[in-house]
Amino acid sequence: MILDAGQLRGWTKERAELYGKPHLGARYTGRRSYELLQPRCCVCGRRAQSCHHVAHRSWGLEFPLVTPNGTWKLRSPLFALCGSGTTGCHNLFHGGAGLKAEWRWRSEVYEEAWWSGELLQVYEPHHPSLYEYGYWVITDRYGNEMIREGK
């Protein structure tokens, strides 16, 4: 699949792919506010204490995706995690970069439907039904797959 450079705004596809996908145990409640929806960390199962932005906040809170089928403001998905940015699983995504989240499409057809905007015409960004088309994979620093969420 070839993406138009205008769609990616100079970002890598891997970076842009982190926006608009379903949340894991959390959600936005406003422009800059969010909440936990589950009591347990989506990685280890301990008590969830914080919401993690999958796309680094320093990259920006939104990614405007312009497609042949429309324009969408996509936000970073949120994960319910234990700890904070310096403790628990939340720290593993930040401090030591021990964990990494990646969205994987179930087929190239679904991936194309996302980047063309077809899926976004049917589902709002972050809609749980997007799990029909893809899933989250969380790997450790050595590339070992730890968790597949939304199978």
Rank of each mutant, 00 (worst) to 15 (best):
Q121N: 15
R75C: 07
H56L: 15
L36Y: 09
L120N: 04
E14Y: 10
K13V: 14
G95S: 12
S58D: 13
E35L: 03
T139W: 04
K13D: 09
L3M: 08
G6F: 11
T71S: 14
I138C: 03
C89L: 07
D140L: 11
L120P: 07
E132P: 02
R106P: 00
F93G: 09
R148P: 03
N91T: 06
C89T: 04
I147C: 07
Q7V: 06
I138Q: 09
N69H: 14
L24F: 02
Y131N: 13
M146T: 09
T12C: 06
S33P: 01
G30Y: 09
T12A: 14
I147L: 15
L74W: 04
V122W: 03
R104T: 09
S107Y: 02
Y19I: 00
R9N: 14
G85L: 12
V109L: 13
G30I: 05
Y135S: 11
Y135C: 13
G25D: 02
I2N: 13
G6K: 14
E108F: 05
G117M: 04
K151H: 12
F79D: 01
L24M: 07
R40Y: 12
Y131I: 05
N144C: 10
I2D: 11
R47T: 15
A113N: 08
F79P: 07
S107I: 06
G6D: 14
L8S: 07
C82A: 00
V43T: 08
G88L: 07
T139I: 09
H126L: 05
L78K: 10
Q49A: 13
E149H: 15
D4T: 11
A113M: 15
L18W: 02
T71Y: 03
E112L: 08
C42L: 07
